[in-house]
Nucleic acid binder design. Structure first.
Length: 528
RNA sequence: CGAGAUGUAGCGCAGUUGGUAGCGCGCAACGUUCGGGACGUUGAGGCCGCUGGUUCGAAUCCAGUCAUCUCGACCA
């Protein structure tokens, strides 16, 4: 036999000691986050295949799944709960800035689209069209078919966005400057027949809010669109813990029908950019297209000034791609449906009863402070299973309480962002948790910001530019200001100008591509 | 819409020259377990994407079609 077994036979005690050491070492090697966690072990494709990792995460964290309907998705209860939290916060922010909610029709007559030429051009290629209003039994007796006799005189378009129908309605609402401003928001679903879809990021149907405002002056409309951009940026940074760059879109990337498009751009973990929200200054384009005029204070007829702004369920995708790791979703506490999950560890009914009793008082203490707590005393799953489950779902804090803790009056607390575990006294939990939640919220933001800083560089050389774009960086470079150059760069590198930052510094330089003079740097990146 | 790949159990996959449908995980029951996705025994679960063709016979061959994924074009 080998040296080891002979050693054990001859010196059993020492051998046994060694065995314990080896066993302990082996246990340590089997760190739960590595090898014993089967799911987590298989879930490490983030580096190799980011999109595969993303899709799997969305499904495994129980957020959503692809539907049998082309390019559509089913948002599952847990995913929807996060969206509801987002909605709730945003809705309050809109109301705090003087807006009201309303609702406009899903169907838009085709003719409305022909009124604003840029707008049609932008959306015509991706519209779902309703042509008939009735089905009938198939002549061959199998199922149903579209009744050809029920053809609509004018086709209806399922809204890809509501500017047209809303401006057609505003026409009837506005006569005088006294009717202005109109500050309306709508929570709705829209349909865009995209060629390629991706859960949350680009689905055929998606949920969003769209604000549509009408103003008496250009300045007021401009201020409104800037103000709402700030609202979005605040929401992204303070609630989603996602740092964003506020900027202006180039004419090429501008919303169809807008004079100026403002955006917030975020960097995902693979270095790609994601447009997380937009706000548009529409000038008088839609007012002119729909003939919306008002009498101003000087009794002169004038076209109305407009803005529109929106964020969608795409924010869910942004949230996922900003924070998640190879153990699953990581949610910022302010948006997490469950902020604290408590898992009991027990063998007997008596132990469970004892633990449950203790947990109830902890839970009440936390809930009194507004913390969203879930006590998971299901007997159908074991503790280890629950740990992994809540990790996958991104629950910010997990508390485990077992017999050992009951003896010591302690509890094990694990934070999701760092996966760090610590034992605390049960009496300090009530005070600790709210602080810890804030700490996690802050840490997530700092971490994401650091990631963006680390992956943002200034480049002045075309060869470097091509290399760095491939590496997935945000690149600050000079640009000669022409759409022509922008398109050529896109063609050669797939990089687009994500934004001209609002806080851009004047700096003389030469265009990265043409060498023509430029006044400031813009942000180039590959985008979703 | 272009190029490529894939559709077989809830999920991941195997299925040989065309001959009665398989594995792993999961699921259910029972027992032992319960401090990081436990183990054993038994069991349930299939219009082999859909339509048509070839054949005595098709998951397998052919044609069409639909869907999904990756890469383009498009886009929040």
């Amino acid at each position: 036999m080998n040296v080891f077994s002979r050693f054990c036979k001859e010196e059993f005690c020492k051998g046994f000691f060694l065995f314990v050491l080896l066993h302990t070492f082996f246990k340590l090697q089997q760190h739960p986050y590595q090898s014993t966690n089967k799911m987590a072990k298989n879930f490490t494709t983030r580096e190799e295949n980011y999109s595969e990792w993303y899709n799997e995460l969305v499904v495994r964290a129980d957020l959503a799944e692809t539907s049998a309907v082309r390019g559509c998705m089913v948002i599952k209860p847990y995913g929807y709960a996060i969206w509801e939290n987002m909605q709730h916060v945003l809705d309050k922010m809109f109301k705090d800035t003087g807006h009201q909610n309303a609702y406009f029709p899903l169907f838009i007559p085709k003719s409305f689209f022909s009124k604003e030429s840029d707008h049609v051009e932008g959306f015509a290629k991706e519209c779902a069209v309703v042509t008939h209003y009735r089905l009938k039994a198939n002549p061959d007796g199998n199922g149903v078919c579209v009744d050809p006799e029920a053809k609509l005189e004018e086709e209806l378009i399922v809204r890809p966005t509501s500017e047209t129908i809303i401006w057609n309605t505003y026409k009837n609402w506005i006569r005088s400057y006294r009717d202005l401003p109109i500050l309306v928001n709508q929570w709705a679903n829209v349909v865009r027949w995209e060629m390629r879809t991706r859960l949350f990021l680009r689905t055929t149907e998606f949920l969003w809010q769209e604000g549509h405002t009408a103003h008496a002056t250009k300045e007021e409309a401009e201020i409104e669109s800037r103000k709402m951009l700030d609202v979005y940026a605040t929401f992204a940074q303070e609630y989603m813990a996602m740092p964003v760059i506020k900027g202006i879109k180039t004419p090429n990337e501008r919303f169809a029908g807008a004079i100026e498009t403002f955006c917030i751009e975020a960097m995902m973990q693979d270095g790609k950019a994601l447009q997380a929200g937009t706000s548009h200054f529409l000038g008088q384009n839609f007012a002119k297209a729909f003939d919306v005029t008002f009498l101003n204070k000087e009794n002169k007829l004038e076209y109305v000034w407009a803005s529109s702004w929106g964020v969608s369920t795409r924010l869910m995708g942004a949230l996922i791609m900003t924070h998640s790791d190879d153990h699953g979703l990581v949610l910022p506490p302010r948006l997490a449906p469950i902020q604290v999950a408590i898992v009991p560890i027990y063998k007997t009914e008596e132990q469970l009863a004892q633990i449950s009793d203790k947990v109830q008082s902890i839970k009440q203490e936390l809930e009194a402070q507004g913390v969203r707590v879930k006590y998971d005393d299901r007997d159908s799953q074991k503790p280890g299973w629950k740990f992994t489950e809540y990790e996958f779902k991104g629950v910010p804090i997990r508390i485990a309480i077992g017999p050992r803790d009951m003896e010591d009056g302690s509890a094990e607390i694990c934070r999701r962002d760092t996966l760090e575990k610590k034992v605390y006294s049960q009496t300090e939990i009530g005070e600790l948790i709210p602080k810890l939640l804030e700490d996690i919220q802050k840490n997530l933001f700092d971490r994401a910001l650091q990631h963006r800083i680390d992956n943002t560089i200034s480049v002045d050389n075309w060869e470097d530019f091509k290399i760095k774009i491939e590496e997935g960086k945000f690149i600050l470079s000079h640009w000669d200001g022409t759409t022509e150059t922008e398109l050529k760069i896109k063609e050669e590198t797939k990089a687009t100008i994500r934004a001209i930052p609002l806080d851009v510094k004047e700096e003389a330089g030469k265009c990265i591509y043409t060498g023509k003079p430029s006044k400031y740097r813009v942000i180039f990146a590959k985008a979703y």
